[in-house]
Amino acid sequence: MALTRLSSPSASPPRSVPAAPTRPGRRWITPWLFLAVPLIMLVTFTYVPVANMISYSFTDWDGVSPDKDFVGLGNYAQLFTRPELFQVFSVSLFYLVASFAQIALALYFATVLSFRLRLRNLFKGVLFFPYLLNGVAVAFVFLYVFQPGGTLDGLLRLFGVDAKIFWLGDPDLVNVSLAGVSIWRFLGLNFVLFLGAIQSVPAEIHEAAELDGASRTQVFRHIIVPSIRPIISLSVILGVSGALSVFEIPYVMTGGSGESRTFVIQTIKLAFQFNKMGLASASAVVLLVAILLITWVQRRLIPEERPETR
């Protein structure tokens, strides 16, 4: 706030500065010229494909044929009258729970590592590293980890647990295993976001709290959490939309077989296995709307309070 107040007077005077004579009518074009390249790319690679997808969702296009017939809301009607197509959303619940666990864990690590600790930079690197790995590589690595007699079983044996567990083969366990991989992979991102936010809290506040004799839990509850609330709510939004659109990890590891099929995997299969591009586009539109809706509801329920306006 203070910064903007300071800078706004200096932003308006260019008129008073004796600059080179320019025709004032041309002025507005300059920022648009700078924006043109990113805007063109955004429109070409995001908005045009989305518009195409929405238009496909009203047709029976098979993905290759030069002609497609308009079927109106037929694809949507089919989507909403076939409960098995929506059942797969229950798989997302596993990832939703996982994303909350992930946020809690990331918050814990970020708080702990924001205090002065030995080897804290090493731990920061260790926690962030999985996020740098490619998702497909992560999935392949964990295929070996989850093999019967593989890395995980071997590790458990060191602790005396000698059970043969089918981490991916057991239908009750497969989504837990996959969600675990997802936590491992995305923890680093949440962690870095939280750490950055925590470190932006002015040191004086921490010092003052320390002088007043606040304990670390009190510092966490009354200083850290309120000051990083926007980041937490962002993480929750990302977590929910991520849980609804899980794809990479289950697709590479199980091919979406059995219980591990997610909505996005189902969409891909409809589009590219059974050539139902129209129905798949309708699914994608439904997913998009669902995510927008959930985000909107969430923003209404937990309004974002700006720490500066208090």
Partner: peptide
């Protein structure tokens, strides 16, 4: 017909399901 019915005679899906049923996982 194969595509319309989403059976997938030459695709892995329904046989994966058959295997899951056979091994008691479905």
């Amino acid at each position: 017909i194969d595509n319309a019915s989403e059976v997938g005679l030459n695709k892995p899906d329904y046989r994966q399901r058959l295997i899951d049923v056979a091994r008691g996982a479905a």
